[in-house]
């Protein structure tokens, strides 16, 4: 069996790569793609930690199920907002969206 530490470190590394992308990419679509990658990395961590528990990973699997569902809902909403913004302004980059800037 592969030690859970490997999965956890991989999850952290992918999460950090996705964070870097989320902070640097200017397109909202790519920001959402990074969010999706982050969700998968967190699910991997949940499953890896859950697998070491005495219940055979049941708790981790249940939490991961909810996490995937929430992730799907979040991306769906985010893309709807991107579409709406694009239709109104013709582009959707994080540089343009500064309506709330003080």
């Amino acid at each position: 069996m592969v030690p859970p530490l490997y999965f956890i470190v991989l999850g952290a590394v992918v999460f950090l790569i996705a964070t870097l992308g989320f902070l640097t990419r200017r397109s909202l679509i790519q920001a959402l793609m990074c969010l999706e990658l982050m969700t998968s990395a967190v699910v991997l961590t949940f499953l890896a930690v859950g697998r070491t528990m005495p219940d055979g990973g049941l708790q981790g699997m249940a939490l991961a199920t909810f996490l995937i569902v929430i992730g799907a809902a979040e991306v769906g909403m985010g893309l709807a907002i991107v579409m709406l913004y694009f239709r109104r302004h013709g582009d959707a980059t994080t540089d343009d969206i500064d309506l709330l800037r003080g």
Partner: peptide, 24 residues
């Protein structure tokens, strides 16, 4: 995302692996 599903299968979470393939 597909590769993540392989890792979930490696962690014996078959249902999660399929869910990952279908949803994300």
């Amino acid at each position: 995302l597909c590769s993540f599903s392989a890792l979930y299968a490696l962690l014996d979470a078959t249902f999660l692996a399929l869910l990952q393939l279908f949803l994300p």
